[in-house]
Simulated assay, not measured.
Amino acid sequence: MPKTQTPVLATLGRILDMGIELHHLRGFLILAEECHFTRAADRLGLSQPSLSRNIRRLEEQLGVRLLARTTRHVELAPAGQRLYEQLADLLPRLEKALQPDRSGEVLRLGFTWGFPATWAHAAMSEFEQATGVRVDPVRRDERLAGLDHGDADVAIVRGRVDTRTARVIPLTEEPRIMAVAADHPLTVRRSVAWSDLPELPLVINTVSGTTQLTEWPAERRPVASAICSNFDEWLEAVAAGRGAGVVPSSIASSHMHPTVVFIPLTGAPPTTVQLVVPRQGAHPLSGRFVIAAQRAVAEHVRRRPARHAN
């Protein structure tokens, strides 16, 4: 073991090497205090048979009888008394040692644009309250929002994700809408069909955009009238009349522009919103954030069933 390891953690290592788990020790300690299986099981939130199995497992691992059982109550055998006296001091110290100080710890949440405040802020709040670790949103104009460069621990990514180095966890879907300049002829339309888009010049965000030309068959593919590398360039190109653009519907409310009009699309495939987590070297609490995000999305959808989470 490392020389810097504390005696308490060194003891924990020896315990685990013996195949003994902390819940076995905690169960014995409570049973020794209560001298009654039913009362001890109630305190531990276990069934009496489960507690009995844990105590039997502990005795087998130690190779000694810890209890002198009678028909009326439980008494400690000599070996049990010695173990109790040591555990009464050691176990609280072990449990305290296993409660890390997370002050200053941060989980970096990557995104490219259009931060989904409705559910993401709820997920951040739940995660921070449960773990004591702060979540910092980090914007990166990259396909995986900085995840592949080590700038983010978890990333919110819209659209297709093709990577073998990360886990992709779908959360929800968003409908797509079309964006055009305010003086575009299509602004008089109430909606535009997805099948009509190949007839229009499109502004494409090739880095973090959710709509690429490859979504149409090669023989019927729109012309890219402008190529951009981030969302802000894309928005200004649309505003300048370089062509139409396609984005998730949440952008209409979160990124207002005085000279851009958003038009509903019919027949368009939805955009998937997902979390992406590295397969190797992931933040120890990234799984906890994924669970918080899944709950937040489910709650948002439950409260607003007629609308997609964004």
Rank of each mutant, 00 (worst) to 15 (best):
R220V: 08
V297E: 06
P284N: 12
R288Y: 04
G267N: 08
G245Q: 03
I291G: 02
R279E: 14
V290C: 13
S250H: 06
V246E: 00
H257C: 05
Q294P: 03
S254V: 03
N230F: 07
S253M: 00
N205T: 08
T206R: 14
T272A: 12
V223P: 00
F262M: 01
G267I: 11
Q212V: 08
T210R: 03
I263F: 07
A292D: 07
T211V: 15
R220T: 09
Q294H: 10
V290S: 07
G281D: 13
V207I: 11
W216C: 06
G287Q: 12
V260C: 02
D232H: 12
A244P: 04
V223W: 13
G243A: 10
T206Q: 14
P269L: 15
N230C: 15
E215H: 04
L275H: 09
S250E: 01
T272L: 09
G245L: 00
S225G: 14
G245A: 10
N205L: 03
W234A: 05
V276M: 09
A296Y: 03
R295K: 15
T272Q: 15
S250I: 00
E299A: 14
A224H: 09
F262R: 02
F262Y: 15
S286P: 12
G241I: 02
W234E: 04
R221Q: 14
P284C: 11
G245V: 02
S208A: 14
T266W: 08
R242H: 15
G209T: 06
V207G: 01
Q212C: 00
A293H: 05
F262C: 04
V247F: 00
G281N: 13
L285Q: 12
V261N: 00
A293C: 14
V247E: 01
S208T: 15
M256G: 08
S250K: 00
F231Q: 07
V297R: 05
S254L: 01
L235D: 01
N230A: 11
C228W: 02
S253K: 05
I291A: 15
R220M: 09
V297G: 06
F231M: 13
S253E: 12
G243D: 06
L235S: 04
L235A: 13
W234H: 12
H255Y: 09
H257K: 09
A218R: 13
M256C: 05
V207Q: 11
A296C: 10
D232P: 03
P217A: 00
E215Y: 05
F262S: 04
V277S: 11
L235Q: 08
T272H: 08
V238T: 05
T272W: 03
V246K: 01
